[in-house]
């Protein structure tokens, strides 16, 4: 009797898994990158995305924010337009073949209803059925740009919501069913002192993962340099700060395209070096990674 009950339970369990397997089976060889702002993903995930493209994946970028605030002396509308065009240029350099700009007002994510942002992201996940997702890490600490927290939170839940057919049920009528994305990379600026602490096992918590970007570092630098409006803003703010405290960075004595590009290059190389610490890589990026081991204990795989 006990054997029969066990056999029945096992059959029910396998039957429950079947749709999940089917959904994973429909996955495209696509990476979808979700970013709150134009520079965050380039600086902290660009090299890895470029490498995946070189290895044969298609890549799509979803920009949540319109980046209207981040310029030195341009009005919001002009800032948003230029950064959109420059984001497209940067994405192209990395090999991303489509950029979707959702147009939420940057720096104002905090009062956007959570589900408004999440459901738009979940829609695109269902449309593109990615194998890999890159999202801002909402669990990172000490990133004082809170758009990344709100965007990351929405993206993380969109990953989950896209996998359940009872979310966004209207899409069922247009044959846009649930989609399980099997791999997720969480990216973040390197400011969290605890960013490499595992917190828990891989079954429960995405684990620290470093990737080798030596082969795509030059591409990443060029992509970062393409974000001209933001880079000009960073350079001018730095120069303003130094001027106001009677200091100078000789590189910025004259702020022009060449000096800004050099500053960006130094920044990207510096980040790659920081992330490579403790690894055998010359240049790296670091993530929290949720792959096959996440939620599925090794003994079940």
């Amino acid at each position: 009797m006990t054997r029969r009950i066990l056999a029945f339970v096992s059959l029910v369990f396998l039957a429950a898994l079947a749709p999940l397997t089917a959904q994973i089976g429909e996955t495209n060889n696509t990476v979808v990158v979700i970013t709150s702002d134009a520079s965050n993903y380039v600086l902290h995930a660009g090299g890895t995305v470029a490498k995946m493209v070189e290895d044969g994946m298609d890549a799509i970028l979803i920009r949540i924010g319109n980046d209207e605030k981040d310029s030195w002396d341009l009005p919001p509308e002009e800032t948003a337009l230029r950064t959109k065009q420059e984001s497209e240029a940067a994405a192209k350099i990395l090999g991303i073949n489509k950029v979707i700009s959702l147009g939420f007002r940057s720096s104002d994510f905090r009062d956007v209803p959570f589900t408004t942002m999440r459901d738009r992201l979940a829609y695109y996940i269902r449309v593109h059925k990615p194998r890999v997702l890159f999202i801002p890490n909402p669990h990172t600490q000490y990133d004082r740009n809170h758009d990344r927290y709100y965007g990351g939170r929405a993206a993380e839940d969109a990953w989950r919501a896209a996998a359940f057919k009872n979310y966004l049920p209207a899409m069922k009528d247009v044959n846009l069913g649930a989609h399980v994305t099997p791999e997720v990379y969480y990216f973040a600026p390197l400011v969290d002192p605890a960013r490499r602490e595992p917190e828990s096992t891989a079954t429960f918590v995405p684990q620290p993962k470093m990737t080798d970007i030596s082969g795509t570092l030059e591409k990443k630098i060029k992509a970062a340099q393409a974000l001209k409006t933001i880079n000009h803003s960073v350079a001018m703010r730095l120069k303003q700060r130094l001027d106001s405290t009677d200091r100078r960075l000789p590189l910025l004595d004259r702020v022009d395209e060449a000096s800004i590009n050099k500053l960006v290059e130094e920044r990207v190389r510096g980040l790659a070096q920081l992330s490579a610490e403790g690894t055998d890589f010359q240049a790296a990026e670091e993530f929290r990674y949720a792959g096959a081991e996440y939620r599925i204990p090794a003994s079940y795989r």
Binding site: Y142, N145, L190, V191, R248, L249, P250, R267
Partner: peptide, 24 residues
């Protein structure tokens, strides 16, 4: 305290700035 200083949002550039910023 948890202190965030002037170059806090620019990790990756800190070493470069330490080496190259000078007094006027």
């Amino acid at each position: 305290y948890y202190y965030m200083g002037e170059f806090y949002p620019l990790p990756g550039l800190e070493e470069f700035l330490d080496d190259n910023v000078e007094a006027k």
